[in-house]
Amino acid sequence: MTQPIISVEGLEKTFTLHVQGGAVLPVLKDVNLAVQPGECVVLHGPSGAGKSSLLRSMYANYLPQAGRILVRHRDRTVDLLKADPHVVLDIRRWTIGFVSQFLRAIPRVPTLDIVAEPLRARGIDDEAARTRAGELLDRLQIPERMWSLSPVTFSGGEQQRVNIARSFTAPFPVLLLDEPTAALDAENRARVVELIHQAKDRGAAIIGIFHDREVREAVADRYFTMEAYGAAA
């Protein structure tokens, strides 16, 4: 059995809302999850169960109160929660990719450049990065005439496709997907499923939240069920 590429151990996350009188919101308690390369784990559970919080914690976007998140990065095992900031940034550049539900678009930046950015961050030159970005935009059916425009004026679905293209240009060993297909039609959902399958085939570990049952069933290797304030494997 191969070593898991990412593994969550004893994770605990509680929100303390100081601005609202110090209200305390426990969200995750003693969460344990290990994911193998090439495996797709779907986080499953009711709203408020902490699925998104778990996913974001795995990207170091949320700060857990306790636990470890061990990830295989550059032939080493790193605890994401204890790593220096530059190491976490390096992990986000090379090892863990995150697809959010919505595209956060900066106006004035052309679509092609947004999608090429993760490759540029890896030192790939402009031209090669843009070519590869174009391939993905093609696959997700964003026509070339839109590549030089900023996505701020695109429809929700188009924006999301740009968002997805961006996360699939550079190959990540771990991909975290937070409702990636929510804004998409059936045809494009199918394309995303294809991309996920391809990623799995090359050995990526996928952890995702999918509301769409069809997509879930098409990609999941197993389910990780979460209940409110906790988790059960």
Partner: peptide, 18 residues
């Protein structure tokens, strides 16, 4: 202090939250 997106999306300190 922390990564920008973490501090802005999941602020811990009361002042940051404010």
């Amino acid at each position: 202090h922390g990564l920008t997106d973490q501090v802005l999306d999941d602020p811990q300190h009361p002042y940051t939250q404010l």
